[in-house]
Amino acid sequence: MSKSASINSSREAMTAADVSRAIVRIAHEIVERNHGVEGLAIVGLQRGGVWIAEAITEQINKIETSVAVPVGALDVSLHRDDIGLRPVSLGAISNIPFDLSGATVVLVDDVLYTGRTVRAAMEGLNNYGRPRAVQLAVLVDRGHRELPIRPDFVGKNLPTHNKDEVSATAAGVFVAPHSEVGK
């Protein structure tokens, strides 16, 4: 989804400063929407969403110091709907060392595209308990959804061609136009 593109041939959609401002804003929005941090848990999707989840959690724990919000990481490879259709590359190992039953879970990913990763993640979460609610935060929403999935918190809406490659790291968000891909 967010294969690293050559920075030279790609367009900068967000600078490093834009990314860190978006993370701070999303953290505030999460606290506001949930009226605090009681029962909140943040889960990043392996691999691209994990560092964003950690950064958001760090901000939330600065905003509200009453309870420490836990952060976990989920690898959805074995929950995907395209197993057997293409080779599977497993991410890092899942690590959710807390019970999600009754929690409000904010799933965090870098780039929201078809929505299939998020669908797989929602299924995977139920292995760890039954969350009270699941919300979705993404750094970039690039469109081209194939499932009825909508993010609750968005860093930037970024119209793209469906063959563009979008990379989102702390260094910024870059779009490699589809004509450049494969060069």
């Binding site: 074995l78 929950h79 497993l90 899942s94 019970d99 995977g124 292995n127």
Partner: peptide, 15 residues
């Protein structure tokens, strides 16, 4: 990866 699945409260994936 499989060992982590076996430690989940529900140790089952649809793979």
């Amino acid at each position: 990866h499989m060992a982590e699945i076996n430690q989940r409260p529900v140790p089952k994936v649809p793979a």
